[in-house]
């Protein structure tokens, strides 16, 4: 399969939508014929990004909107997860493994580390006024291509 395809989902910043988002993106990415491991990586990354938007962007408020966009271009999947909540004050600090701004919530501080590890490209755009947007890319080598 090749060519362009894209999707966009907007939903309330409620924790029950974390599974909705990762399952939806996984279903969309399935057309690239990923391995189970690649699909698990994508699901985990979407879960991390959406959880961050809910906990950190909106401080757990349920009246925010989280937007997930996915785009397929050839064998590459691009993802963006955005909120219009409170931006990240110190990006370098936030990207440190094990760092969490909310230790009282029993966070592991591994979210960014996981996203950086599971994706080929990872970028954060954040501002106090405009919220946070995570943009990521991953190349999915088709199983068919590997066996041919």
């Amino acid at each position: 399969m090749s060519g362009h395809n894209h999707m966009k989902l907007s939903f309330a910043s409620r924790s029950e939508n974390e599974s909705f988002a990762r399952v939806s993106v996984a279903a969309f990415v399935s057309q690239l014929d990923p391995t189970l491991e690649q699909l698990d990586e994508i699901k985990t990354v979407v879960s991390e990004a959406v959880t961050n938007a809910i906990i950190h962007g909106y401080d757990g408020r349920t009246d925010g909107i989280v937007t997930v966009e996915a785009e397929i271009d050839g064998d590459t999947i691009s993802l963006s997860v955005s909120d219009q909540g409170r931006g990240i004050e110190d990006l370098d600090l936030a990207r440190q493994p094990l760092y969490t701004s909310r230790p009282e919530l029993e966070r592991s501080g591994m979210g960014f580390t996981i996203m950086e590890n599971f994706m080929d490209e990872f970028d954060v755009v954040s501002s106090e006024a405009g919220g946070t947007s995570l943009r990521m890319k991953k190349r999915i080598e088709s199983k068919k291509a590997l066996f041919n």
């Binding site: 699901k43 985990t44 879960s47 991390e48 959880t51 029993e106 592991s108 979210g111 996981i114």
Partner: peptide, 13 residues
């Protein structure tokens, strides 16, 4: 079937 870093946090706790 699925775990993310929130799971790691609660297990660590």
């Amino acid at each position: 079937q699925f775990m993310d870093s929130s799971g790691l946090g609660v297990i660590l706790g």
